[in-house]
């Protein structure tokens, strides 16, 4: 299995992590997995909401030492 592509958006605030994800997703292939690292809790809530709205697959969120790891798969 291919490794997840990490998008390190730590230190940025809303909607920075979402924008960094979208900019990167644009060049990703369908089926690729991504993991956004964010120190902004609002983005940890907002990114899954965006994924649901536009139809990419949300794989889960976990928090480690103040950093949220938001995993997803590009579906289209």
């Amino acid at each position: 299995m291919a490794e997840r592509i990490i998008i390190d958006a730590r230190g940025s605030f809303c909607p920075g992590p979402l924008m960094e994800l979208i900019a990167r997703l644009k060049y990703g292939a369908v089926g690729e997995e991504f993991e956004v690292l964010s120190s902004d809790k609002g983005s940890a809530n907002d990114i899954p909401e965006w994924l649901h709205k536009v139809g990419h697959e949300f794989l889960g969120t976990r928090e480690e030492a103040g950093v949220w790891h938001i995993a997803l798969r590009k579906t289209k």
Binding site: S12, G16, M19, I22
Partner: peptide, 17 residues
Amino acid sequence: EKKGPGYRQLFQSAAEL
């Protein structure tokens, strides 16, 4: 004082993305 996307960068993202 915070690191984050400024308004110009966000408007540019709105237009380009």
